[in-house]
């Protein structure tokens, strides 16, 4: 079982973990290319971060939602941050194809849940292999089924 920070240490542990995650994700997101390539690189960075350091990923996910209101609020910031990186995908859809407001939070939630489960089960190393699936999942609402699959398979993943 992964060690749990004491309550007094949790807020510091979360903030330090969140700052480190943002650095690696933004490095990926800053990659040259169109948004699908950049978001794929960001997802890869996030998944590799969790695979390399499951204890820190656990603080950001499972520990956060186990901590009551303070933990929920911090976890919410993580979801908002991820959702913010996804929002530019909307520009790829034709104007008349409506996407619901909650889309980005749902996609972020799906990815975070996959990471949280693998970390909780002691299977964080598997996350590297799941990157192409995660990329396809995230791109589908913006690019459609076929193009998302191709983009994930062709190196956007």
């Amino acid at each position: 079982m992964l060690p749990s920070p004491q309550p007094d240490d949790f807020s510091h542990a979360f903030e330090a973990a969140f700052a480190r995650l943002q650095v690696v994700v933004e490095e990926g997101y800053g990659a040259p290319g169109d948004w699908p390539v950049r978001i794929a690189a960001a997802i890869r960075a996030g998944f590799e971060f969790a695979a390399d350091d499951p204890g820190t990923a656990n603080v950001l996910t499972n520990e956060a939602i186990a901590r009551g209101r303070d933990g929920f609020a911090r976890y919410n910031r993580l979801v908002d941050y991820c959702a913010g990186l996804l929002a530019p995908g909307r520009e790829l859809r034709a104007e008349n194809e409506q996407l619901p407001e909650i889309l980005e939070r749902s996609l972020a939630g799906g990815l975070i849940m996959l990471i949280a489960q693998r970390v909780d089960q002691g299977r964080a190393a598997e996350l590297r292999a799941l990157v192409p699936e995660a990329v396809q999942f995230v791109l589908t609402p913006y690019l459609g089924l076929e193009e998302a699959r191709r983009a994930a398979a062709a190196g956007a993943g």
């Binding site: 996609l107 799906g110 999942f137």
Partner: peptide
């Protein structure tokens, strides 16, 4: 895909 789809809805 099912884990991520269920996770997406569960998160909301």
């Amino acid at each position: 895909i099912s884990t991520m789809a269920a996770g997406a809805v569960s998160a909301l």
